[in-house]
């Protein structure tokens, strides 16, 4: 089967919306890395850049929504073209949320530089952020290459991020019990960790959406959730 429509303008429309998603994905990847770096290196300028760049991400989401609506109205897409357009909308929504979390990380960096440093978590958070950024990169590749297998691998990967978050949760509890003066900083750091963990969940949703795009069906089996902090009542 040919991949091209008889009407070539239709192909150009679909390609241009997908290019916008890839562009948005690139900006969000950079925001995650820069946000985590600004935290570890206490780089207020870089944090400021992340906050400013979020506007561009939000604008791209609006543009994708508009172009997708236009495509639905004018082209009446069916079958995999319809899935392409629906997926674009969903991915753009997830990317916007991830971008917000990255911006939030940068905001908290600005607050954290004023406080006394807690050794350890910054580097762990940056590792966690890198992990999520790698997942996002793979999901975008899976999306543009229509690779359901790669998307499935990303989905399995979320487990690792959850594990990292669990470990950090315990670490923060320990710091806070050791010295109550750590509480404010640890609360901020914990929110950052939680937000990165949420980014991982959103990337996982994106992976599921890519599987739907390729196969026409969402994966049925529910992903094993590894975030067990909801059940932690004391530090062992």
């Amino acid at each position: 089967m040919s991949d091209q429509h008889i009407l070539s303008a239709y192909d150009r429309d679909l390609e241009s919306i997908q290019a916008l998603v890839m562009k948005m994905g690139g900006l969000v990847e950079a925001a995650i890395l820069d946000g985590a770096q600004s935290l570890e290196t206490r780089d207020v300028e870089l944090a400021e850049k992340v906050r400013a760049n979020d506007k561009a991400i939000d604008e791209l989401e609006l543009r994708i929504n508009e172009e997708a609506a236009r495509c639905i109205a004018l082209r009446a897409p069916v079958s995999k073209d319809l899935r392409t357009v629906l997926t674009t909308l969903k991915l753009a929504g997830s990317l916007e949320r991830i971008g917000d979390y990255a911006k939030n990380m940068a905001k908290r960096t600005n607050v954290l530089v004023e406080m006394r440093e807690i050794p350890g978590p910054d580097a762990s958070l940056r590792r966690m952020a890198r992990e999520v950024e790698g997942m996002l990169r793979d999901v975008l590749d899976a999306y543009i290459q229509r690779d359901a297998k790669l998307a499935e691998q990303v989905r399995e990967h979320d487990h690792d991020v959850d594990q990292m978050y669990n470990a950090m949760f315990r670490e923060f509890l320990t710091f806070m019990m050791e010295d109550p003066r750590n509480i404010t900083a640890c609360m901020h750091l914990h929110f950052i960790a939680k937000n990165i963990e949420r980014m991982g969940d959103l990337v996982t949703n994106m992976a599921e959406q890519v599987i739907y795009l390729v196969t026409g069906e969402l994966p049925e089996d529910s992903r094993p959730k590894a975030d067990s902090t909801s059940y932690i009542s004391k530090v062992d």
Binding site: M1, S2, D3, Q4, H5, I6, L7, V78, S79, K80
Partner: peptide
């Protein structure tokens, strides 16, 4: 073939 036809692609 159904996919090609309904989505307006060259079959």
């Amino acid at each position: 073939r159904t996919e090609s036809y309904i989505s307006g692609r060259i079959g």
